[in-house]
Design a protein around this nucleic acid. Structure first.
Length: 423
RNA sequence: GGAGAGGUGGCUGAGUGGCUGAAAGCAGCGGUUUGCUAAACCGCCGUACUGGUUAUCUCCGGUACCGGGGGUUCGAAUCCCCCCCUCUCCGCCA
């Protein structure tokens, strides 16, 4: 959520920043609501002061045995007036709040201006795609022949877009999760957490999934809960409505399943494991002091990159332009893996600095150097998402005979197994 | 799911209609004492909104907040209603 006072101070700057993100913000209307609310609050508070003063006086006179029924009648009218003004303030605040909740975050000044993904900038690339002596196959062919992926039976269970891993496929995924959790906790200083997979509307609003992205989520209306689309939601909301007293930064890593409806998506970009309704992900989340959040963003990206480097998978890092930034992000890097069978790049991580956007929505604060409460900056990034990581491993490490070599760095988590061969 | 108990400031814990933004203790901050540490003593010590003042971190007021929402009353932490959460017991269950 944006700070209405910041909008008031620099309405033109805010308008332009939002336009770069492709949003036409009703700034004038927001400011009018804000001003009207302030006036009404001032008015009702004066009335309440009067009520408090007179009530105290009436109490004393009543105890002294005076007849105060006439004044009580006048006070009843005052109370009625106050009730009306209170309602007016509530209405104004609700309208203002709803509008502010619908506004996306402002892009950071360093973010390149652009309308869509074509404006993204490659900041670096790592690794060299392997030269194949044969035509590399897509992962769904390799995986189905190995018997580690079964899309048809999965569809019978749940519908299309739900993965079913079998045997060494399931085992490979489990090993990758362990490998990543161990890496981030032992070498990168993250504290592992195992959060709930269902979250309430307040949590979803805190991180920015609500109100805009309601249609993208699986809902459980009987219990007013949503299945989490990412561990970002439960982990970031751990400190909702708190003034964090422990020292910052706080770095958390969590492995969770993620659920996304992905309504409308279909075609080449969704084949096999590339875009699914349910997937596993290891997520990194940070709570940091505002003046350190951009260096923490760089180290976050680097922590995710380490996973791919250890596994020997070629990737590139993109800096997203203003038009491609997600709703809540001020700045974001995507990491994309090379997938030779798919013959394209696959996003496996998205590392964002939300600055105080989520913190303001969720009420996550810390004590600044002057002892006053202030909003933290929140960041998160995948470290990394499993299905596309599996795709990249299967496609990059496939052999002519249809087997898949297990990356050396992963073998300790696979009890030394070196390859997945046809059964 | 059923029955009961309870939700007060960072923590513990008083408070059943006005004298309570809230006793007391702990923790924290500042100071005195001290060779250092500790102890002792003194003071400070919630959040948000809002008016004025001021150099953005100042100062002086006001309003609201004792799980959330609504109500009764001139006046509610305190009385009533609904909801949420925690604990105990029973039931169910991985």
């Amino acid at each position: 959520m944006l700070d209405i006072r910041r909008i008031a101070e620099d309405s033109h700057g805010v308008e332009e920043a939002l336009r770069n993100k492709g949003v036409d913000a009703p700034v004038a209307e927001l400011l009018a609501l804000h001003e009207k609310r302030r006036q009404t609050v001032t008015e009702v508070e004066a009335k309440k002061n009067e009520r408090n003063v007179v009530s105290k006086e009436l109490g004393a006179r009543k105890r002294a045995g005076e007849d105060i029924s006439e004044q009580q009648y006048a006070m009843r009218e005052l109370a009625e007036h106050i009730r009306g003004l209170d309602q007016e303030v509530r209405d104004l605040e609700e309208r203002l709040y709803d509008q502010l909740l619908a506004l996306p975050n402002l892009p950071h000044a360093s973010v390149p201006v652009g309308a869509d993904a074509s404006g993204n900038r490659e900041v670096r690339a790592w690794g060299t795609p392997r030269a194949f002596p044969f035509a590399p196959k897509p992962h769904w062919e390799v995986g189905q022949r190995l018997g580690i992926l079964d899309f048809e039976r999965a569809a019978r269970l749940s519908g299309s877009g739900f993965p079913l891993l079998l045997g060494d496929g399931a085992r490979l995924q489990r090993a990758l999760i362990q490998f990543m959790l161990d890496l981030h906790t032992r070498e990168h200083g993250y504290l592992e957490v195992a959060p709930p997979y269902l979250a309430n509307p307040a949590a979803m609003t805190g991180t920015g999934q609500l109100p805009k992205l309601q249609e993208d989520m699986y809902q459980l209306p009987a219990d007013s809960l949503y299945l989490i689309p990412t561990a970002e939601v439960p982990v970031t909301n751990i400190y909702r409505e708190e003034i964090i007293e422990k020292p910052l930064p706080i770095r958390h890593v969590a492995h969770t399943p993620c659920f996304r409806r992905e309504a409308g998506a279909a075609g080449k970009e969704t084949r096999g494991l590339i875009r699914v309704h349910q997937f596993e992900k290891v997520e990194l989340v940070k709570f940091v002091e505002p003046d350190r959040s951009y260096e923490e963003l760089e180290s976050l990206v680097s922590d995710a990159e380490t996973v791919l480097q250890r596994l020997g998978l070629p990737y590139r890092v993109l800096e997203l332009c203003t038009g491609d930034l997600s709703f809540a992000a001020a700045k974001c890097y995507d990491i994309e893996l090379w997938a030779p069978g798919h013959d394209g790049w696959l996003e496996v991580s998205s590392c964002s600095n939300f600055e105080d956007f989520q913190a303001r929505r969720a009420g996550i604060r810390y004590r600044a150097a002057n002892g006053k409460p202030a909003f933290v900056h929140t960041l998160n990034g995948s470290g990394v998402a499993l299905p596309r990581l599996l795709v990249a491993i299967i496609e990059n490490y496939q052999e002519a005979d249809g087997s898949v070599v297990i990356p050396e760095a992963l073998r300790p988590w696979m009890q030394g197994q070196e390859r997945i061969a046809p059964a």
